[in-house]
Computed example of a mutant assay.
Amino acid sequence: MSNALTSQSFPFEVVAKVRESSTITSFHLVPLDRHHWQHFEAGQFLTIQVPDPSTGGYVLRNYTVSSAPSDEGMYRITVKREAALAPGTPQGLASCWLHDVVEEGAIVIINGPRGGFKLDMGSKRPVILLSGGVGITPTISMLKVLANESERPVWFIHACDSGAVHALEKEVETLAARRAGIHVHYCYRFPSGDDVERARFHSAGFISRETVQKLLPLDDYQVYMCGPPPFMQAMYSLLTSLGVGKKNIAYEFFGPASLLSQAGHGDVSGVAAPPPTPIVDQSDNGIHLVLQKSDRRFAWDGSSESILSFLEAQGVEPPFSCRAGVCGSCVQDLVSGDVEYSEEPLDDIPPGRVLLCCSRPTTSIALNL
């Protein structure tokens, strides 16, 4: 797949660049043609074309929209500056370009919005918005919607290292004060003396089992969480150990989904969820996935959001990157069978190929894996 955006890509002007913390900056984007602004749902992301000096071409990066869907005509992305490992390496390329090169008045090319991590406005369940670091970007967009358009109880729980890197704090407080039923809890891993003096946080260290039990009454929650992998692993293990159903935990996680059920560094719950049990079925009933190279066969149970997630649950880990139909890293040969796409791929998929991250089988299929 190409690293250039498609005909659905449009130029946007950076009309504001706002420093949110020592490492995080927001960019307000307005289309040059107002008709190119598209409605989005809280939690979705934009895909941005970023110049790559090492090749003279472009790379694509996804950034969650941190503004509200009601802010028509403008998108805001809130980006943490990641340090590059070395010149020419992909880590930090996009965030350094945004932080160091892009200024107000610059034009960026975007495609969006897209993504399946979305706030379910049809549910009446109380909501937990759980974030670590720059993972606050989708949860604050969701909080904006819940504060203005819902009466559901909300617990907004955010973890970061200290006040120096805490972004969007005042915005969260303003939203929480908008109506009753919104509760805010900040956990600082390494609070400074100034943080203590100003009482900027509610707990220190890691978000613990005891903290969550004291903070949350017993209820049937819908959880939305986003953050770095160790944080996500720890929170997933903690929540499931407290009885929160896996089907009620939605997350934005750019890594193998199977990692969420493995204990990792930062696991403060003390309880690790067991690894998924592979589903192997040699019968001819129902839909099956056949991996021709490895001579393996699995029964599709219909519960996975994509072929990629399903294969990961069976212990198979195909290559991937964005998990959102953008980068093309997970494209594979489709030897036989048919699939449907829950998220339209950014580029056209040629016949005989399939994008694993956003497709599901509609018949038994065979992959060249």
Rank of each mutant, 00 (worst) to 15 (best):
P276K: 01
G245R: 03
G270Y: 08
G266K: 00
G266V: 01
Q282D: 15
I249Q: 04
P274Y: 05
G255A: 15
A272F: 03
V271A: 12
T240P: 15
L242D: 03
P278N: 06
G243I: 04
L259W: 10
G243Y: 01
L242Y: 00
H288M: 11
S283W: 05
F231S: 01
G243T: 03
L259G: 08
K246Y: 05
D281R: 01
S258M: 07
S269N: 06
Q233F: 09
A273G: 09
G266P: 04
P256E: 05
V290T: 12
Q282G: 13
P278A: 07
L239N: 04
G270F: 13
I279V: 15
L260V: 09
F254G: 06
I287C: 11
A263W: 02
P275K: 02
D281H: 05
V280W: 03
G266H: 00
I287G: 12
L238Q: 09
L289I: 15
T277G: 13
S258L: 10
P275V: 08
T277L: 15
M232W: 00
Y236G: 10
Y236T: 13
V280E: 15
G286L: 07
F231A: 02
F253S: 07
A272C: 14
V244Y: 14
G255V: 03
G245D: 12
L242P: 01
T240K: 04
M235G: 07
A272G: 08
S269L: 04
T277P: 11
T277V: 15
A257S: 14
A263L: 07
G264M: 07
G255L: 08
A272I: 03
F254H: 10
S241L: 01
H265W: 06
S269C: 09
V268N: 15
A257M: 10
S241I: 01
Q262V: 10
I279G: 14
K246P: 12
M235Q: 14
D284W: 04
E252K: 00
T240R: 10
Q233K: 12
A273N: 09
G255K: 02
S269Q: 04
N248P: 06
H288D: 13
N248L: 09
S283D: 15
N248V: 02
T240F: 10
V280H: 06
K246C: 13
A250R: 12
P256N: 03
Y251T: 09
L239H: 02
A273D: 11
G286P: 13
D281A: 07
